[in-house]
């Protein structure tokens, strides 16, 4: 009896950080939310030139514990479910693509299919980071010509003299619309009264021309990037510009 009581008290009192993490890990929420967010991406607007991109910080708008998100994203990357790309205006912003979509667009867009296949099996499946050294490419029998083709097909971009970033076809077009869209959404928030606006009201605005990615997509983006703070009110979420 006494032992059982003891155990009960343990659970009630000590919600230690380790236990909390275990709970969050079991649910695997990050992947679920990533899939939801990727469905927000309007693929048809880009005529399938751009895959369904999600920025990593967008997940933070749905899950408040960022450490858990980071850990799960890391795990998903190591398991080859998703892939991270260094992309974006801020120092630490990362883009996320699901691996199946990434491979699909490589096969569709690449000019040299054999080279693409080799790139996937030799490089993508082995190196899970966002950056790549030239040495690793040379070691796996990629010639200078091949590297040029890869850069031309937008699978690599130059970082320094002998390092490259991984990239995906359509990244430039995505970045252009993404930065523009974020600017105009932030402009709306800033210009509204007291620099705050209800999320519902913002989503009702007709901004199809200036925000091709959709208002919902950008709402997650600006909340996750801490550009606005979220305040719960009785009539829904209120977004307040954070300066």
């Amino acid at each position: 009896m006494s032992k059982r009581k003891n155990e009960e008290s343990e659970i009630v009192i000590y919600s230690s950080p380790v236990k909390q993490q275990c709970v969050a890990n079991d649910v695997r929420e990050t992947e679920k939310i990533l899939r939801e967010l990727s469905l927000l991406f309007p693929e048809e607007k880009f005529l399938k030139r751009v895959p369904r991109v999600v920025m990593k910080h967008m997940i933070y708008s749905r899950i408040s514990n960022r450490t858990v998100v980071d850990k799960e994203i890391d795990e998903l990357t190591q398991n080859g479910v998703i892939r991270l790309f260094k992309l974006g205006s801020e120092e630490e912003s990362l883009a996320v693509l699901f691996m199946d979509q990434y491979k699909e667009i490589i096969n569709r867009k690449c000019s040299d299919l054999l080279l693409a296949k080799k790139f996937i099996s030799k490089i993508l499946d082995r190196i899970k980071e966002t950056t790549l050294e030239k040495e690793a490419l040379i070691r796996t029998d990629f010639s200078e010509e091949n590297i040029k083709t890869l850069i031309h097909d937008c699978l690599l971009t130059v970082r320094t003299a002998n390092t490259y970033w991984f990239c995906f076809p359509g990244a430039g077009e995505f970045m252009k619309t993404y930065v523009k869209g974020r600017q105009s959404i932030l402009g709306v928030v800033k210009k509204s009264k007291y620099q705050q606006i209800l999320q519902n009201e913002l989503e009702l605005r007709n901004m199809k021309k200036t925000v091709p990615l959709g208002v919902c997509y950008h709402v997650h983006d600006i909340i996750g990037a801490d550009l606005v703070t979220c305040v719960n009110t009785t009539s829904g979420n209120l977004l307040r510009f954070a300066n």
Binding site: Y60, R66, T67, V69, D74, A225, D226, A242
Partner: peptide
Amino acid sequence: EMVNYGKIS
């Protein structure tokens, strides 16, 4: 330790 505290201005 990769703990993410978010943005602290």
